[in-house]
Every structure is written in C-alpha cells, then in structure tokens.
Nucleic acid binder design. Structure first.
Length: 125
DNA sequence: AGTATGACTCATT
DNA sequence: AAATGAGCCATAC
C-alpha cells in the first residue's frame, strides 16, 4: 500500500449515507477482551454478512478515524496472521500492541491462535 | 458506467 | 501442499 498525493476520502467522512455496518463492526471489535483476538470472517458472520470478510477489512481501514478508538490489532485473518499490520502507523505497531496485551506473536502470526480466538458468534450469542 | 482493487475466505485443481 | 479461481461488495478512478 502506498500513500496517494491527495487525501483519501474514507467512507465515514461522508455521513450522507448509511454506514451502520461499519459502526457495527467497530462495536464488535471494541468488545474483544484484552488478550483475545478475532477474525474478519467471524465478525462478518456475526453481523450476518457471512461472505463479506473484505468489508470488515474496509471497516478496519476506516476505524482509525473514529472515536472511541477501535482495537484493530485484535482482528486478524482466519489463520491468525497479522495481515493488516502494514496499515498501522508503523510496521511493528500491531505486533507490539498484541504483545503488550499478552498475545504471543511470532513472524506476524499469533501463537496458539485457537486459544486466544474470541468468536462473537459464541461470546455474544 | 465499467473496471480494478482489497486489513478475506472457501473450493477446486 | 501450494497455486488458482471464484464469491464477496464498497470504494477508487
């Protein structure tokens, strides 16, 4: 990913449309307890858009500009890999945040991923 | 308005 | 086991 010369227009910047889906995503992510992680697919599934994990990724992309902050570092792909780390302020920020929360990360992958996996479909059922 | 792209995932080859 | 194709759908151009 690269920066464009012009400022990116993020979806939430335009409040003329209904972006409740994004807000729902942020709401779920904010409920992920410290020391746990979830996945794009699980969140998408919980929100009823089972096959639209990409949209959850978009919501994360837009999450940096919302308040209160969304712990986007707790959302990884289904293999526990930190695929979104390049979108953080620095290349290591995502991993550092996870380590600080007690989650073991090795080579961009969460160790014992299944043990720290937090599934909204189960926890928020 | 049509094409391309992506913080994804699943099925098929 | 690794690569490929397809589904997904909102943005960007």
């Amino acid at each position: 990913m690269k920066k464009t010369k012009t400022a990116q227009k993020l979806p939430v910047a335009d409040n003329s449309k209904n972006y409740s889906f994004f807000e729902n995503v942020w709401d779920v992510v904010r409920q992920i307890p410290e020391g746990k992680v979830s996945t794009y697919g699980a969140i998408a599934n919980y929100l009823g858009v089972k096959s639209s994990a990409r949209m959850v990724g978009w919501a994360m992309n837009a999450s940096f500009m919302v308040s209160p902050p969304v712990p986007a570092q707790r959302v990884v792909n289904r293999n526990g890999i930190l695929t979104g780390k390049v979108h953080f302020a620095t290349a290591t920020l995502m991993e550092e945040l996870l380590l600080k929360e007690g989650i073991q990360v090795e080579k961009d992958k969460i160790v014992h991923f299944t043990k720290v996996f937090w599934d909204p479909n189960v926890e928020l059922a």
